[in-house]
Structure formats: structure tokens, C-alpha cells
Amino acid sequence: MPLPHWHTYDHYGFALVAVLGTLVAVLLIQWFIQRSPWAGWAQSLRGVSPPFINVIGVVFGLTLAFLASDTWSAHDRAMNAVYREADGLRSIAALADALPAPLGGRLRAAIGSYASASADEWPHLAQRREAPEVLARADALLTLIASAEVASAAGANVQALMLSKASDIRAEHDLRVALSKTHVNPLKWLGMAFLGFLTLVSVAVVHIERPRAAFIAIVLFAFAAAPTAAIVLVQGNPFQTPTSVTPAPIEAIAAGLG
């Protein structure tokens, strides 16, 4: 297998940037309001009403929630695609049992061959790649189902159902491949980082007359925001750790037909 490109694991890098960037922002703000040449000017900003924090904080929270929803939705869609793919294979295998030998055995062997290749594709998906062998075996399975031999033995209705299931299998495979190639959108996360920085600044301004309270407040917000953003970022590819989608349903079919 070829070596992964640098952007294969870009979401881990963005997670590290989120944590370190938040730390730098906290230290920078604290230096600015206490030790910088502009500390005196910063003290003149006292008097900002505490509810002002809610305005920016809510916008930041909603932005992070939407980004988290996109990430976890991709994970759920990938998991559902795996189970639907496995269900399609299981359905065709059940219909193949009614076919006479040796045609039924050939069809079950084609299903097992595809299932094995599909289950072995996970390392490729973790590297945001597609295994050409899976498509080749999917084509072989579809060609066999569409053959006149299957039409004669199974009948037009059963063959049409098999073809529909085979088409669904390819669609679910294409979906999980597409989800594996989804990258972090830097523009979205840059906007979230900007809102997070503004929230830190607003917290500091509200507590500007009490430097220790300001420091504690921005540190608490940083501890809440940075790890949450990092957790969302490290789940950027549903086929990588720590929450990798499992190929167990497809592996079970491959084992059963092996």
C-alpha cells in the first residue's frame, strides 16, 4: 500500500493547533491586560456589562455545535452505509440459496469474494483511498447477477430484486468512500477560532478590574472550548481511530460464505 499523504491525518494537526492556539491566546490576553505597554489603556475598558459575554459566547457555541454535528453525522452515515451494504449482500446470498447448483454456489462465491475485498478496504479508507479490487469484484458480481443464466434460473422478478440489491451495495460503498475522503474545512474552523478568541477577549474585558478573576475566567473557558474542539477534529475521518467505523458486519458475511 502506498504511503499516506500529509493531508491524510490533517485533522490531528488541526486539533493540536486548536489546543496550542488557545493556550497562546490565553497567555497573550493575560499579558496584554497586565504587563504590556497598553495595560493602562486596557484598564480603561472596565464597565462592560457581564451579559455581553452571552452574545459572543452563544454564537461561538452554536458554531462549534454545528461543526460537531457535521462530524458525528458523517460517522453515523458511514456506519449506516456499512450495515446497509452488509444487508444487501445478505439478501443476495439468501436469494442465491434457491438457485440450482452450481450457479448458486458461483453466486455465493462472488458475494463472498466481494465481501472479503470490501472488508479488507478499511486500511485504504483510513488513508482516504479506494481499493480498485473492490470495484472489480462488484462489477463481477453485478455481471453474474445480470446474466441470462441467472435470469433463466431465478426468474425476472428475483433477478430484478438481486440487481436492485447489487446497485444499493455499490451506492453504499461509494458513500463510505466519499465520507472517508472528507477533509477538514479550514475556513469553517478559522471562523470558529476567531469567535473563540473574541469570546476570550470579552471574558477578559468583563473582569478587567480584577486581573486574577479575569485569568481564572479565561482559563476555564479555554479548558471548556479547546478540548471540545480537539475531540471534534480528531474524528474528522470516520474510518480512523479513535472512533473508527467497524467492518464487522461485512466481515461476518465474508466469514459465513468463506
Score class of each variant (00 low, 15 high):
residue 11 H to I: 05
residue 13 G to Y: 10
residue 14 F to W: 14
residue 16 L to W: 15
residue 24 V to L: 14
residue 27 L to G: 12
residue 33 I to C: 09
residue 39 A to H: 06
residue 41 W to Y: 11
residue 48 V to E: 02
residue 52 F to C: 02
residue 54 N to P: 15
residue 59 V to E: 09
residue 60 F to C: 12
residue 62 L to H: 00
residue 65 A to D: 11
residue 72 W to T: 15
residue 76 D to P: 10
residue 84 R to E: 15
residue 85 E to N: 14
residue 89 L to E: 04
residue 89 L to Q: 03
residue 93 A to V: 06
residue 96 A to S: 06
residue 100 P to C: 01
residue 104 G to H: 01
residue 111 I to T: 03
residue 112 G to A: 06
residue 121 E to M: 09
residue 122 W to A: 02
residue 123 P to K: 12
residue 134 V to W: 05
residue 141 L to C: 02
residue 141 L to V: 09
residue 143 T to C: 01
residue 147 S to N: 07
residue 155 G to I: 03
residue 156 A to S: 14
residue 158 V to G: 07
residue 159 Q to L: 01
residue 161 L to P: 15
residue 161 L to N: 10
residue 162 M to P: 13
residue 163 L to N: 11
residue 164 S to F: 02
residue 168 D to W: 08
residue 170 R to A: 05
residue 172 E to F: 09
residue 172 E to Q: 09
residue 172 E to C: 10
residue 175 L to H: 05
residue 176 R to P: 13
residue 177 V to D: 05
residue 180 S to I: 03
residue 182 T to P: 00
residue 183 H to I: 09
residue 191 G to S: 06
residue 191 G to M: 07
residue 192 M to L: 12
residue 194 F to I: 14
residue 208 I to N: 05
residue 209 E to C: 03
residue 215 F to W: 13
residue 221 F to T: 04
residue 225 A to W: 14
residue 231 I to L: 03
residue 236 G to K: 08
residue 240 Q to A: 10
residue 244 S to E: 11
residue 247 P to H: 02
residue 258 G to K: 00
